[in-house]
Simulated assay, not measured.
Amino acid sequence: MAEPFLIGDSMTGGYGNGPDILHDCTIAVEKGEIAVIVGPNGAGKSTAMKAVFGMLNLRSGAVRLDGEDITALTPQARVAKGMGFVPQTQNIFTSMTVEENLEMGAFIRTDDISDTMAQVYDLFPILKEKRNQPAGELSGGQRQQVAVGRALMTKPKVLMLDEPTAGVSPIVMDELFDRIIEVARAGITILMVEQNARQALEIADKGYVLVQGANRFTDTGKALLADPEVRRSFLGG
Rank of each mutant, 00 (worst) to 15 (best):
D174M: 12
N196R: 09
L224C: 11
G237K: 09
K128P: 00
D178S: 14
A2R: 09
K206A: 09
A80T: 13
K155E: 14
A204L: 06
L123N: 04
K222F: 00
A166E: 14
A200R: 10
V52Y: 03
D111C: 08
N57Y: 11
L65K: 06
S169F: 01
D219A: 13
D24H: 11
N91S: 11
G18T: 14
D111T: 14
I203D: 03
V168K: 02
I171T: 15
Q195M: 06
T110C: 02
S114I: 05
E202G: 01
D219P: 00
G221V: 12
L56K: 07
T110S: 14
L191C: 12
L22G: 02
P134G: 01
P40F: 00
L235M: 03
L159G: 01
E202P: 00
D111S: 11
M1A: 15
I7W: 06
A35C: 09
A77W: 02
I113E: 07
F234N: 01
G236D: 05
V209A: 07
R231L: 04
A118E: 13
T220C: 06
D205E: 12
G105D: 06
A118H: 10
L176R: 02
F53G: 00
F124W: 05
L201F: 02
G54T: 13
L224E: 10
E68F: 01
P125K: 10
T218M: 06
G207N: 11
S60L: 02
